[in-house]
Design a protein around this nucleic acid. Sequence first.
RNA 1: GCCGCGUUGGUCAAGGGGUUAAGACGCCUCCCUUUCACGGAGGAAUCACGGGUUCGAAUCCCGUACGUGGUACCA
Length: 504
Amino acid sequence: MSVRVRFAPSPTGGLHLGGVRTVLYNYLFAKHHGGEFVLRIEDTDQTRFVPGAEDYIFNCLKWCGLQPDESPVHGGPYGPYRQSERKEMYRQYAEKLVAEGYAYYAFDTKEELEQMREENKTEENPSPQYDHRVRLKMRNSLALTEPEVKALLAANTAHVVRIKMPQNDVVSFTDMIRGEVNFQTGLVDDKVLLKADGMPTYHLAVVVDDYLMKITHAFRGEEWLPSAPVHLLLWKYLGWESSMPQWAHLPLILGPSGKLSKRDGAKYGFPVFAMNWTDPKTNELTEGFFERGFLPEAFVNLLAVLGWNDGTEKELYSMDELIANFDINRVHSAGAKFDYEKAKWFNQEWIKQLSAEQLRVQVEGYFLSAGIAVDDIAKLDKVIELVKDRCTLLPDFVQQAGFFFKAPETLELDAVKPKWSDDKKQFFVEYVDVLKSVGNWEVAAIENAFKELAAAKAIKPGELQLPMRIMLVGGKFGPAVFQIAEIIGKEETIKRVEYALSLL
RNA sequence: GCCGCGUUGGUCAAGGGGUUAAGACGCCUCCCUUUCACGGAGGAAUCACGGGUUCGAAUCCCGUACGUGGUACCA
């Protein structure tokens, strides 16, 4: 049977690191086994609908190169892929469970539930559950008589369907990452399966949809582990046990102080979402890796090895290499703290690894938004190749290479002035004349002329190189000066030197 | 509180009874480079704690501590 996995986000906001990594592991596992990766939208909570969130998720996946084989926009044989559009499919299963005694109707109002929690609340038990200890005291089809229940139902009384968790049972399963995990059913509450509005909760929906969509392996975040016994029981009660997927609960990605939250981004200065997300209600912007100047190759790479390794020392992987090497059994069971410094290192490595041609479009984009026009693609490629070793994030190219296309607006003259002298000024005045007569404009000629003149004036060339650099570049950075002079051309070199001289 | 999961340098981590306990990021020193990087050579830094089991424990078992998640008609 072909491998089928799914990622099931709820479209309520930005897609953060952990979410992308969950998609990634799903995707890698599916592709490694030649299977399908399904994207299902879990939008059963109508109160949390956020416009734009679904499109946003697709954009992020596209940027990351993690395209689903089946989804609301890609289609597929098991649709619809939006749970809100599958609403009618769930009720029958909930009813079946009630009919067979595995679930029951509950008519408790919000107020009644609150009251129950309030009354049972003690210091020892700050969050009382709706479970076997209280269910017979509540207003549900277990506690009420049959005529009472029928009457309530006939009167269209708002009600939910809850699972009836066994009082004394142990549910266990083998997690692909953690091994055997056990739960005592009596400690788990009677989760709502079908809400009063007819929508299923996550618990019913995952089981029904995973079954209907023929999912073979279910990977999700560790936060789902505590409700796993509910899902296991549902598979069993619905009679689908033999087609239950294999589970893997992925470790959490932590921030500098505990669970990674979008607040950490603002607080510690690093992005936590894949792409920029602006909350339509609060207008609050949470920064994304894309906008920060990360390459998708690097983003995927760093996420892949945050919690997984193939047992070798390899750390840099292309998507194809990840697909070839990924093994869910080698995923760590412990949560991993996200390290932005290392994330930047991955990006730097990928910038070094990609060719100028592969970086060109993105670099040009940053140039354009910085007001730098690029007229010559061959020149751009040459420049990218020359400076990419000193760029960590894509916007760094503006600083590191912008001066090849546009004269620096400000010169860091403070780096020159302390050691400036009339002799040095005279040197540059004469050097400009020499440059004007250089016929063969290339590094060797420019550099030799420089050194010869310096020797003639008995000034160490090294002391003149920094001023020269500031004149051409504006600051103390960039590739070899004469290399820069060659690329920006004779006319421009002379122009920049003369301009700088006018300021000194 | 209860339940689940976890715990190897600051961070990511390999190793799963006998190792000088890999490697990477970051940090420090030096070399290269008369800029900044890249690159190269070194360095500091680790098995949470306590009991077992064993000739021998980072590795297996139990307990404790700590972290983290769950305990919603949210996912």
